[in-house]
Design a binder for these strands. Structure first.
Lengths: 160, 160
DNA sequence: ACACTTAGTTAGCTTTGCTAACAAAATATG
DNA sequence: CATATTTTGTTAGCAAAGCTAACTAAGTGT
């Protein structure tokens, strides 16, 4: 994709125009590259029964600790009913449990089980293995470029 | 994730073990960063009726020119039935058309309509606008880092 | 005490992924 | 030439995951 063959900016005057055009082009390429990368990393892990959305949600609970269903829904940017269903499915898989809150009987607290933690770690390792292999074959400069860019991308994503 | 201060010495004489560790860490952070980035960029564009999968497929046809349904399915990494249904839906939206092939009556050739091109461009512009704004506020070095990394990521994705 | 707000669930719809089974056309083989 | 195989796309039917609307239960506030 990407309008790769689009015209060069009429580099008549200053940096502002050039900077804008450049930002637009980088936005396009970065977006496209991110899509391709994640598409290549097949997210669904049939072996462990951990789909993309489940792995993502479980990862939030494992690394972030127990939290309410609403917080988890917000973190995953889905609506409560969607998260409710995801949690039910993962609970049936034995990956996490619903707990009540002692001070507020409305809230549902979600906690990863030992099995959930174990399975998440294994799925993560499998998912990243193929990427790691490719990265190992990169020139050191390229790997360094990715390391640097990762930080920048994280910052960019945070301010989106 | 982990390593708050992760300035890795780019030493030319790294040992293999060290290199592996670094690749693993970069894999993790890059993967996570890509997810966060795309999550921030809400893909579904209700206004134009162009969901993520549709926008992506249409973009391939618009920029790559007419192609067979099978080629499009391969490009989008979905099975033929999935693409067949996607094409049917987009055809009903008037975004593209199915055409027969003169030499092989089995194949279906898919071509974007003028409306499809127009709507894709508009949706792309909307989708990238917010990212572009953030990128424009970056330090030139950071923007350059992203530009460089985009190319590397594209290469990495291609060999996944 | 009664109205309002908040947290989560249930019900039901849509989209998008898949596999299995099929039809039609092209190609290979006897 | 006739038939078997392969290729291309479709249809049918299932499951996952997203949504909104409507509901229950529990806190809050006037």
């Amino acid at each position: 994709m990407s309008g790769a063959s689009d015209r060069e900016p009429t580099r008549a005057t200053e940096s502002p125009a050039r900077s804008n055009e450049s930002a637009a082009r980088v936005a396009d390429r970065l977006h496209s590259a991110a899509i391709q990368l994640l598409r290549g990393l097949r997210v669904t892990d049939r072996k462990s029964g951990l789909s993309g959305p489940r792995a993502s949600a479980l990862s939030v609970v494992v690394f972030g600790g127990p939290m309410t269903l609403g917080e988890l829904a917000a973190a995953e940017q889905v609506r409560p009913p969607t998260m409710s269903r995801l949690v039910t499915a993962m609970e049936e898989q034995g990956l996490l449990i619903r707990e009540g809150d002692s001070t507020d009987a409305r809230v549902v607290r979600v906690r990863a089980t030992a099995k959930g933690i174990r399975i998440l770690q294994a799925a993560r390792a499998r998912r990243l293995a193929s990427l790691q292999v490719v990265l190992e074959s990169l020139a050191p400069d390229d790997l360094q470029a990715l390391a640097t860019a990762s930080g920048v991308i994280e910052r960019v994503a945070r301010s989106l």
